Amino acid sequence: MESKKLSSFNLLSDIHTEMLQLPKSFRESVCQECGWSEATFYRKTKTKKAFSNAEKDKILAVGDSLLKRLLAHSNAYRPR
């Protein structure tokens, strides 16, 4: 977002909305990357079984990517 456009946004509401979207975005991205259904995702959140190294890498990469996106979004509000 450009700084000119940000003046029309409510900072609190905008960041809150972005953060509320994180769980859904995380679930959808992990399912896509790992080839899982939504049911498989939730089943695997409750299991104590270990994940494969490939699954671990994909899960961490998705989390890192989403956090970087949120940080970039919030940094758009900071003065330069």
Results as ranks from 00 to 15, higher is better:
Gly63Arg: 11
Thr45Ala: 06
His73Gly: 02
Leu11Gly: 05
Gln21Val: 00
Glu55Ile: 05
Thr47Lys: 04
Leu60Lys: 10
Leu66Met: 11
Leu22Glu: 03
Ser29Asn: 11
Leu66Asn: 05
Ala76Val: 01
Tyr42Asn: 07
Pro23Asn: 10
Gln21Phe: 06
Arg43Asp: 14
His73Gln: 05
Thr47His: 04
Asn75Pro: 00
Glu55Arg: 12
Lys58Ala: 08
Val62Thr: 03
Ser52Pro: 02
Leu71Arg: 13
Met19Cys: 00
Met19Thr: 04
Ser7Trp: 07
Ser65Asp: 13
Ser65Pro: 00
Glu38Asn: 14
Asp14Thr: 03
Gln21Met: 05
Thr40Asn: 13
Asn75Arg: 08
Lys4Gln: 13
Cys31Gly: 05
Phe9Thr: 06
Phe41Asn: 01
Phe51Ile: 02
Leu11Ser: 10
Thr17Pro: 00
Met1Ala: 13
Val62Ile: 01
Ser65Met: 13
Ser7Met: 12
Lys46Val: 01
Lys5Cys: 07
Lys44Gly: 03
Lys4Thr: 09
Ser3Phe: 12
Lys48Leu: 02
Leu12Val: 06
Ala76Gln: 06
Lys46Cys: 10
His16Pro: 00
Thr45Asn: 03
Asn53Arg: 12
Pro79Asn: 11
Asp14Leu: 01
Ile15Asp: 00
Asp64Leu: 06
Leu71Lys: 12
Leu60Cys: 02
Val62Phe: 01
Lys46Asn: 15
Ser3Cys: 12
Arg43Lys: 14
Ser25Val: 07
Met1Ile: 04
Met19Trp: 09
Gly35Leu: 04
Ala39Phe: 08
Glu38Phe: 06
Pro79Ile: 10
Gln32Lys: 08
Arg27Phe: 05
Phe9Leu: 12
